[in-house]
Write a protein that binds this DNA or RNA. Sequence first.
DNA 1: GATGATCATGAATCAAACTGAAGATTTTCA
DNA 2: TGAAAATCTTCAGTTTGATTCATGATCATC
Lengths: 311, 311
Amino acid sequence: MLELRHLRTLITLRESGSLVEAADRLCVTQSALSHQLKDLESRLSCELFVRKSRPLRFTEPGQRLLALADDVLVRVEDTERDIQKLLHGEAGRLHLAIECHSCFNWLMPVLETYRRQWPGVVLDFSGGFIFEPLPALARGEVDLVITSDPQPISGISYLPLFAYEMQVALANDHHLLTRDYLTPQDLIEETVITYPVSRERLDIFRQFLDPAGISPKTVRNTELTLMMVQLAASGLGVCALPNWVLADYLAQGLISVRRAGADGVWPVLYAAIRSEQKRQVFLQDFLTLARAHCLRHLPNVVAADDDTKII
Amino acid sequence: MLELRHLRTLITLRESGSLVEAADRLCVTQSALSHQLKDLESRLSCELFVRKSRPLRFTEPGQRLLALADDVLVRVEDTERDIQKLLHGEAGRLHLAIECHSCFNWLMPVLETYRRQWPGVVLDFSGGFIFEPLPALARGEVDLVITSDPQPISGISYLPLFAYEMQVALANDHHLLTRDYLTPQDLIEETVITYPVSRERLDIFRQFLDPAGISPKTVRNTELTLMMVQLAASGLGVCALPNWVLADYLAQGLISVRRAGADGVWPVLYAAIRSEQKRQVFLQDFLTLARAHCLRHLPNVVAADDDTKII
DNA sequence: GATGATCATGAATCAAACTGAAGATTTTCA
DNA sequence: TGAAAATCTTCAGTTTGATTCATGATCATC
């Protein structure tokens, strides 16, 4: 019997383009997917996709099933959400704040979708650089903070969204491009361009330079991501940003990028909420939506290893 | 995770009105359904139906899920059928014949649905009493024969549709009504009204009277089911018909009915096809449709025990 | 308050789905 | 072209979770 599981697999397979990647996203082994698909194919007695071809191609039957999946899965999800609304009411307040300033990129489309799914939830947004979001969260002025620096504060839970790679942008003729990856020492003579916030809130210091006890020659601030990249492109400094931000500029040939350290720096992005709101369905749904969106649309982003909630 | 299995269960539950009955139709135990539903409810953290109420009532969330199921399952089935059409072509010929003359009742609505699902299949129908359908099937003049008397003929496969109870209709003041059930001996002094076909093709002889070596006083023929019932109602004889045919007249109070024997006589209705056509999707689909329709809409009908195919 | 029917529960069972390791195939790149 | 890397398949062993069986609880009916 066909099950929703199969449809979910097919959708993920289309999005990821390979069994390995799809298995990773679905949190099963690649072997399991191979079995599942083979089994499904034998039940329908037809091939669903052409294996020996990259990118993965779907056969006509496969495409029919995908169309079905697109159609059916949103209905299922809508219904599940409807039922939760029915049970817990659909009104609420969601005041957002971000500590990770590159998150605007993915946050906007997510909010767009969310607004449609939860018209009863009042959305608001507190941005800005001076603002300290976590105390404001504890005081109840905001309801959800996106941060990569979970500080233990009583009454605050951190729910992991995903892990991303922080990479360093360099001018295309930068001398450090001879290296495969950068060491903290490499940056001693460099100008590092950052957002105008304290060092503890910047991944490149907290997770890369500070542990090595190293400070760059100069630190220069700007509030605009694009300006950070432009300065780096002009050779006036280097800047560390999430991979998904740099990917665009890299593709345009504006800059080059290198990892920070041999294995790279992989901060985890968290959604911080007040612990008492953990069961709020409209909040949980925001997280589900954000995770799904980012895992699908951002490059080089992986599900956070565990869902440990720091309280 | 919600699965199609759950939706199928809910639909069946609504149709049957009780866990016991639904479990029976789905060919699982009542316990399995109880577990499955309890599990689903705990996942959604809400009740889906009100247990202590007959007829079974669905809660608001339950109804949402049912609406989803109605919506989604037909799409799934349509897609599965589409894929099979894609693979095997959608044209074909389906010439039907029936040996069981009471089957008109359910055959018409089934054909109606089938015609919509397989517009490319040419439907035809050979009825009549003199006609011998099985040899015609072997010769290829018809493609599917509905019969309760599977005779081993080389090249012919009999696929079980369902089992039904054959019951005996008696006038409301008939003296045999004092019995809980009828024995073959009870009919020695009776007039039995049948369709005008040979004894071997009549369940009441083949499965009830003949094994006991008993013949009724008189056998009287008529081609019309309604007339058989009218004659029985008038006390001019008794007639044996499938339970689903008698149910209507019984409800109207026209007649009374009794089982034949303590456990009743339970003929199995088969679809006979040429073995070479066993893999034809448009034929298989007709059987699936017929089974589903009859199990849903006919009273006192059960899935045939096994799918043994006599060749 | 006994009886029969339906549904719930818990332990035991069974089958489906999954994992892990190894083999086959394809792709990539020198 | 051939070796290395990556992807997919296959097989055997394991785990999970769905199902059954046996029993207990609850409800309707006489």
